[in-house]
């Protein structure tokens, strides 16, 4: 039996003018939410914006976002075969989709 994770992802460049896109991702046990988001970029929508660097090691700490309202690292949050809601961090400046300003002020482009 093949199961599906349904990821409902917030999209947009302004908090008050966003939309929701729902993607169906083939689910395999052991996957992370980041695995699911990367699958979406390759197979459905390469314009989905997110931050990630180290992919799997939880070393770079760039993939912070919210899953079902809880702040997580996408690389360690488990993908599950159900509806999951993925949103950008609420308290940071939003760039696009799941990308927010998470760098310390002294390490930003000015």
């Amino acid at each position: 039996m093949s199961s599906i994770a349904k990821l409902k992802v917030w999209r947009g460049t302004a908090r008050d003018a966003g939309r929701w896109d729902t993607f169906e991702v083939p689910f395999e046990p052991g996957q992370s939410v980041l695995d699911g988001l990367r699958w979406i970029r390759i197979h459905c929508d390469p314009s989905l914006a997110m931050r990630f660097s180290c992919i799997n090691a939880n070393a770079c700490k760039e993939c912070m976002l919210q899953v079902d309202g809880e702040t997580v690292y996408a690389c360690t949050a488990r993908l599950e075969p159900r509806h999951m809601t993925v949103t950008p961090l609420p308290n940071k400046k939003l760039f696009r989709d799941l990308v927010t300003e998470i760098a310390p002020p002294s390490e930003r482009f000015k």
């Binding site: 931050r51 660097s53 180290c54 090691a57 070393a59 770079c60 700490k61 760039e62 998470i102 760098a103 390490e107």
Partner: peptide, 14 residues
């Protein structure tokens, strides 16, 4: 191109 000191290989060098 990523965040300072977070991308690349160094941070992965365990």
């Amino acid at each position: 191109r990523s965040l300072i000191g977070r991308g690349g290989a160094t941070v992965m060098a365990q």
